[in-house]
Every structure is written in C-alpha cells, then in structure tokens.
C-alpha cells in the first residue's frame, strides 16, 4: 500500500512538472544541442555536411573580420551601458532621495519603465524618424536656423545606434539602481553629513558603494541586451554598425553558412554567460559583505 502511495505521489509530481520540463527541453535544450552539433559541421553546397572539426571556431578566432565585429559589438554595448548608467543613476537618485511625494515618484518611475510595454521595434524605429533627414532633429535645427539644409550625419552610424540602444534599454538600468537606492536607509546619508562629509563625499563613500549591487545588475542587463541586439543596427546603424547578431543572422541567411553561424552564436552565448556569471559572483560577494 505504501509503495502505491509513493508511486501515486511520484506520478502527480511528474504530471505537474512535465509541461514546463517538456517546454524547456523542446525549446531550449534541443535547439542548443542542434547549434552545438552544427557548429562542428562543414559548410558545403547546398548547406552543410555532418562532421566533427574545429574549422568554424578556428575561423572565428583567426579571421580578423569576426574578431572586429565582436570587439565593435562589445564597444557599443559597453558605451550603451556606460551612457545608461550616467543617465540612470542621477535619475534614480533624484527619484529616491529628492522626490518626497510618493505619487510623483511613482509617476516619474513609470515614465521610464512604461515604454517597456511598447513594442521594441517601434521604440527603435522612433529614433529613425527623429534622426533622419526629414526627422524631428533636422526640422528643429533648420527652424532655429542652425542648419540651412537637412543633414544626414545623425542617422546610420554608431552614434545613432548608441543613442537608440540606450533609449531602448535604459529601463533595465533604472530599475535595479532604483531598487538598490531605495533600500539605503536615509539615516545613513544623514549620518555621513552629520559626521562632516559633504554631499559629493557621501555619494562616493556611502551611496555608490551601497548601490553597487544595483549598478552591477543594471550594467549586466544593458550590456548583455545590447550585445545581442540586431534590430537597431538594421534600423539606424550604418555600414560600420554591424554587430555580432547581424553577422550570425547573415550566416543563416544570405551567406548560407549554418555551421559558422552556429559556432558564432555559441561564442556569443559563452561571452554573455561569462559576463552574467561574473556579475553574479560580484553581487554575491557584495551581499556577503553587507548582510
């Protein structure tokens, strides 16, 4: 009888867990496994032939064009994260410590977060209309007389991509920093002032160190999201604005080199996982130090 009960409990457990398990296996592990397998194949007309060789990986790390794209992607993602941080931190700080009315604070917070509910594509596309030759920026500059004819320097370059990506991903920087700052008891900031420190020293010695977990989390999210982005290079990036995700997409499309595409995708995955692991370690270290 006991064995029957155990069996029935197990069955129930299995029934509860199997749909998510099935989902994960079918849509996560199987595709990744296919990618891994493909990355060792050889590209050959019309598609690829099964093989086990490291040619694709060797090509990625020896052909400078792939390395360049990886470095450019990292540079753009890094700049986007940095710009987001420089904008998001003061904003979150202002919301948490300077806005006293809870209603106003929530409104201002939602003003940053709400765009997340708008289609990503639409948000990126907005910048095309702002920066384009017939866009908002040009019209404004011409109406004020700064420009006599529309300029095309604003769109289709890396700067446009950085602006767009920063706009698109900044909520992911604001949210964790806001949460981290909100957790700092105001008395700590007051205590620092009471002990003779000015506002800047307090910021450097108390506020920023205590907000570090939020800063790291925000940096990680914006960096990884920008690193994998492939819409904004298409919409607002120029010929020098291709990112790693575009190159991967091209391998599965026009270039018709699935094995190389798979290898590139896995390299990118490893880089992103590496960054997430490092930031997780850092955060745990910080938590152990604080708690």
């Amino acid at each position: 009888m006991t064995a029957g009960v155990v069996k029935r409990a197990r069955l129930r457990q299995f029934l509860v867990l199997s749909p998510p398990l099935l989902w994960t296996v079918l849509f996560m592990f199987v595709p990744y496994a296919i990618l891994v397998v493909y990355s060792f194949w050889r590209a050959q007309f019309p598609l690829a032939v099964p093989d086990f060789q490291f040619g694709n990986y060797i090509e990625i790390f020896t052909d400078p064009q792939y390395l360049n794209v990886l470095l450019r992607t990292a540079k753009i993602a890094g700049l986007v994260s940095l710009l987001s941080l420089l904008l998001a931190f003061p904003y979150a700080y202002f919301l948490v410590f300077k806005v006293r009315k809870p209603g106003l604070r929530l409104t201002l917070y939602m003003a940053v977060v709400a765009p997340l509910w708008v289609s990503y594509l639409l948000r990126a596309y907005t910048w095309k209309t702002i920066l384009g030759t017939e866009g908002l920026l040009n019209s404004f500059l011409m109406s004020t007389g700064i420009l006599s004819e529309p300029s095309s320097v604003f769109l289709y370059n890396q700067t446009a991509m950085i602006i767009t990506l920063t706009y698109v991903f900044i909520p992911f920087m604001v949210m964790p920093i806001y949460a981290a700052l909100e957790k700092i008891p105001p008395s700590l900031i007051e205590a620092s002032g009471d002990l003779g420190e000015g506002a800047l020293a307090t910021l450097a010695k108390i506020t920023i160190p205590l907000a570090m977990p939020g800063i790291v989390a925000g940096f990680t999210m914006t960096f990884c999201l920008s690193f994998g982005d492939f819409i904004s290079p298409i919409l607002v990036g120029g010929p020098d604005g291709l990112m790693i995700a575009n190159v991967i997409a091209a391998q599965f499309g026009a270039a018709l080199n699935w094995p190389l595409g798979s290898a590139l995708a896995l390299v990118m995955l490893v880089i992103v996982l590496g960054i997430i692991t490092a930031s997780d370690r850092f955060e745990r270290l910080g938590q152990a130090r604080l708690s």
Binding site: E190, A191, P209, L290
Partner: peptide, 11 residues
C-alpha cells in the same frame, strides 16, 4: 547625532 536605527555604515 545618534540615530534611532544607529545608521552604522554596513559596508
């Protein structure tokens, strides 16, 4: 001042 919650810097 000595604060009610002591306000010691946790880090």
């Amino acid at each position: 001042i000595v604060f009610q919650d002591y306000a010691l810097f946790p880090h």
